[in-house]
């Protein structure tokens, strides 16, 4: 079965989506990621969507769900690299994300994720 690879980088998981996902593939990623968070005790998830030229309501919902599920499993999700045309289209489509943090690219996303994980704790 086709799958999107999940890389482990310390306590972070890194996913780069490079294919035009059909719906089942997106749901497989959701399952694989939640399983991987628990298996590796990951505290952060970074998803690079810079290669996606379309995010429709289904893919948008799956990405939003991944962020919400990660949060329940005590991991922070950062979605990076959204193309401007995709951002415009998602808003007009009516997709709104809660619990989703975004950054412009992997480097910035990694830095922010790191900072919030290593930041001052109460």
């Amino acid at each position: 079965m086709e799958r999107i690879p999940i890389l482990k980088l310390g306590d972070l998981l890194l996913v780069t989506i490079q294919v035009d996902m059909h719906d089942r593939l997106a749901l497989t990623l959701q399952d694989d990621l939640t399983t991987a968070i628990v298996a590796h005790g990951a505290r952060g998830v970074l998803i690079d969507i810079s290669a996606l030229d379309v995010v429709d309501s289904f893919i948008g919902r799956v990405l939003g769900n991944i962020a919400s599920m990660s949060r329940l499993l005590s991991a922070e999700t950062m979605i990076v690299g959204m193309q401007p045309a995709v951002a415009i289209t998602l808003v007009e489509l009516g997709v709104t994300w809660r619990h989703v943090r975004t950054a412009l690219n992997v480097e910035q996303g990694m830095r922010r994720l790191r900072a919030s994980l290593d930041g001052p704790r109460a």
Binding site: D53, V54, A85
Partner: peptide, 14 residues
Amino acid sequence: SLVDQTKLVTAASE
């Protein structure tokens, strides 16, 4: 335009 392409493809997908 790229934005209009994206809107068309997204609508088609839905």
